[in-house]
Amino acid sequence: MPRKADVKNKTMKSPETMSSLVWRRFRRHPGAMAGAIILAILILSVLLAGLSPFDPEISDIKNRFQPPSGNHLFGTDGLGRDVLVRILYGGRVSLSVGFLVVGISLAIGVPIGSAAGYFGGWVDNVLSKVIDATMSLPALMFMILLSAILREIDAPFLKSNSTLTISLVLGVLSWPTAARLVRAIFFTFREMEYVTAAKALGASNLRIIISEILPNGLGPIIVESTLGIGYAIMEESTLSFLGFGIMPPTPSWGNMLDKAQEHLSQYPWLAIFPGLMIFLAIISINFIGDGMRDALDPYKILAQIDE
């Protein structure tokens, strides 16, 4: 059904590039656009947190457990600190952990998954065993162990319980999910004829992996990554709860939520607002991922143009 495309060829003033096509399709996805706007507001306010008159770490015992009011929009906590400003500073930590963890797990998972899926055979056998073994590690124990070790050794950049350390711990544990996905993508795409065509032109394996196959698997990788960001934010809170995460007084959404549990029935705002933030961040990122996947799917783009 190529006729419409042909007429487009003749009538389109300037050629529409893939990125502008993707953007046009992304914009049509209402959830994704809402997600992008919410996330942009979140990031912007987190960055502008310093403009607030309140300090996130200095306590003000007179004003402890204040319910939300004009002065303290989200109320105050057990040490009288403003919840809103703590949420904003906590967002810096939580969002950084989310993005860093996904970055680290992609950095490890994509090369391993690509190699396993592309070469198959014994390469796949060995790498799949590594993937399965990592997945079968008891995650919680391993996280505790790893952060304990990192606390002991004085590695540069890896100050104990810093954002980077925690992201590294979580990233090392979460890459197998990415690797599995990428492996499955390569299993499908390595059979495509344009891969055979590239081979026939004399392209090297590395070239085929990077420039022929990976770009086509972008959609599912992005969706998986957005899920990973949410997952990492939650995991960080678990670690905080066990005393291995971000340590008070530095706020993170995770440790604020955990602290709030003690007074859930009396001072519900302490749990509601960080919880709402986690929820908003995760859902907006997931919607963005959804929209990106649809916008990036070449076959979907084709189907839309055809029918």
């Binding site: 344009y194 770009p215 084709l302």
Partner: peptide, 9 residues
């Protein structure tokens, strides 16, 4: 169609 990379001009 299958033999052309859909993401490349």
């Amino acid at each position: 169609y299958a033999s052309l990379n859909p993401r490349r001009p």
